[in-house]
Design a binder for these strands. Structure first.
Lengths: 245, 245
DNA sequence: GGGATGCCTTGATCTTTGTCAAACAGAAAA
DNA sequence: TTTTCTGTTTGACAAAGATCAAGGCATCCC
């Protein structure tokens, strides 16, 4: 297997020699569906690059609920930010969502390389900066937006990624529900509700968006990014009463 | 006014000459209560160090609610992570909570210094890493914990900071409520509830904790950090039924 | 002192989401 | 084909918080 880790943003500034050094400390692993990579509270001496499948990062509450913090896609690294802490401890658990393949790297080794390359440092800082922004957005969603809003926003993003109004959900419904911090039942009901309102059609994991602009207004994406003047939102929650006049 | 910015973790690795350079691009400002520093969506060319008072970072939802993301205390920097983005835009709004004093710094100038000092880079990465961890913890709290749990956790932290079971709330109740993502009414009711249960006494903004261990179990701090085996939590929500046998 | 003003509290009620339990569907195994 | 399994849907219900409206209690200012 010959993978160029420079496909990952984090490593993209490394020269051949540095790549060799990093790879020396690396370890490639294959994970079965549901197999655990590490758990919340484990000592964090390594960070990871996903090269196949998906890895889910999550936390578990005292009553057993799990909240998915992120789903890492191939080509992306995770847990690299911990490298800079004195006593690095994973703040989340990680396990494979379906079969997956990851490479892990030794923190100490990578720090050595880092200390020799400002460019790589900047690269990392950029990555971390983006992650920070993403988390703030997430907090925003969780506190300021309703379940319906969050689901609509996810559908719109998916739609834009695919570039079509007809697409497949990027994961099982239950998984998406956990990602959006809601119960599968709620997820299901919202979809059904949107269906009833003729905003979309659903057939198992296939979604067809019928009314994009309505969907968009339910997701009020404008205000999330603060690009539009805040406007009072008439449509709210699940009890959408839409007037098509 | 002669402030050594090295009190801030971010700057602590700078030598005299670097401090001088940074200060050249700096600008000190005084803010009145409620005065705005920047708003969500503004172009982010500068970052800040609080040297007096408090700065609140928040986002506003489409229906006017505001969620406080963080309250920055003197000696701390904020918005420095944006420096590494191509098109830096503040993801939150910032305004003074009471009269406050801040120093702002030019991103570009600081990046220049950064590019000459690996040590400062590492310092920044450490700061960002901690912030990431804090945000993950926050998401955890918001999705996996109840309002009561969050409030109890805040009280305990405050108590540990002060080192006494008798202390003053670190801000107005309404502000704390927004910080914890709940309505002032809910905040009030929870406090009253804890009072009724003889867990604490409250007199305006003074809190006296009567039963720390009970408070701690309501906050279930153990499970948040994953240090303890997960145990089913019997006490939940606001309707606390405690058996003192 | 006496308003006014700005929090904070309290009560009644409503909404959103979660819970529990059962039915259902589709895919894989037998 | 039937069985089994897992994930999804549906319905009735409960609970945590939000909302609305009113009252209380400070402080500031004239």
């Amino acid at each position: 297997m010959n993978i160029d880790i420079r496909m990952a943003h984090l490593f993209s500034a490394l020269d051949d020699d540095q790549v060799r050094q990093v790879m020396e400390s690396s370890h490639t692993g294959t994970l079965k569906d549901g197999e655990s990579l590490f758990e919340t509270g484990d000592e964090a001496n390594r960070f990871f690059l996903v090269i196949g499948g998906q890895i889910k990062l999550f936390r578990v509450s005292s009553n057993g609920d799990q909240k998915i913090i992120d789903i890492i896609q191939p080509g992306n690294t995770f847990a690299e930010a911990l490298m800079f802490m004195e006593h690095p401890i994973y703040p989340v658990s990680a396990e494979a969502l379906g079969p997956a393949k990851v490479i892990s790297f030794d923190n100490r080794r990578f720090l050595q390389i880092l200390s020799g390359s400002i460019e790589v440092c900047f690269r990392i800082m950029g990555t971390m900066s983006q992650r920070l922004r993403g988390l703030i957005k997430e907090i925003d969603d969780l506190t300021l937006q309703s379940a319906t809003t969050r689901l609509c926003a996810l559908l719109l993003h998916r739609m834009e990624d695919v570039g079509q109004d007809h697409f497949t959900l990027p994961a099982a419904k239950g998984v998406l529900a956990a990602r959006l911090s809601m119960k599968p039942e709620t997820f299901s009901r919202i979809l059904q509700n949107l269906s009833t309102k003729n905003i979309l059609k659903t057939k198992s994991n296939e979604i067809e968006v019928l009314d994009e602009s309505l969907l968009r207004s339910l997701a009020h994406l404008e205000s999330i990014y603060g690009l539009e003047p805040e406007k009072p939102c008439v449509l709210k929650g699940q009890n959408i009463s839409i007037d098509l006049n």
